[in-house]
Amino acid sequence: MFPTSTQKKHWMFTDELELQRLREEANQKFIAKHRNGIEDVDGYFLTIAEERIFLKNYELQMRDLCNKFNPAMPKAVIGTSFHYFKRFYLHNSVMDYHPKEILVTCVYLACKTEEFNVSISQFVANIRGDRDKASDIILNNELLLMQLLNFHLTIHNPYRPVEGLLIDIKTRSQLAYPERLRPGIDELLEKVFLTDACLLYAPSQLALAAVLHAASKIHENLDAYVTETLLGPNTQQRLVDLIEAVRKIRSMVKSVEAPARETVKIIEKKLEKCRNQENNPNSQIYKQRMQEILDEDDEKEMERYKRLMQKHAQVDAQTLGIDRISSPGN
């Protein structure tokens, strides 16, 4: 139930300004930590605007990955992946964790939480490039992702509310062939996830916006259904709020545009320099750290073995010692 969920409690925000503020905090925190006396902050580190463009680019990539996924994935997995991705970069900087890694991890985790069963090998078959490395990255990042999402893994997607609204429209409104609305609904919901609307509005509101958008596309009018049937009488203020929400969602969706490829390339280059090398699987530091973790495990094994041997030696010494003492008495 959405009204009692962690989604409403922890991941619904007042407006876009608040989201902006949180992202700024994450950005500033990273810069403060990794500045090390660098003068030209804006020139060296990514700015908020650059981060936003970069993330938008990866959101588009995520959409393509999900749509081309084999076996075809349910829509709820796509919605959940986008939720995770957006939530993650609210509190973390792009420079700290590269989005191309977080992206695949989000999709992989969403497959699990939405009960879409794919194995890791099946999953990486959908990714270009080195697959062994990809599966390593995904599995290494999975727990980190869950932790940084604060283990709030249940996502309420707008897809089921859409079904509910369609059933309700079929039952209680005069609209002919409501199934005609489907293409319009799908179009809007796909774009909705490229905006921050899912962090600001309830899934049922997104669903209603999608249904109304689809209705206007086929030149039908559902206003009467919304005002009279759905909300009923004596809900003037509610109606105003709801209409405002729907209007806002639709305008957010309209403003979506893909970032220019050149800008993304420039940012990518800049990021390679300023990103946190500890989280870069290609970097020397990362490899060194992984090696250290492995060595540590080995060392622990060795130590245990050593202790065991010592104990054995002690026991041996004791038994032998007793023999030595008792022999002269005989």
Binding site: K8, M12, R160, L165, I167, Q205
Partner: peptide
Amino acid sequence: EAFMGLYH
């Protein structure tokens, strides 16, 4: 689910 949270 369609009705829940519409007043949000």
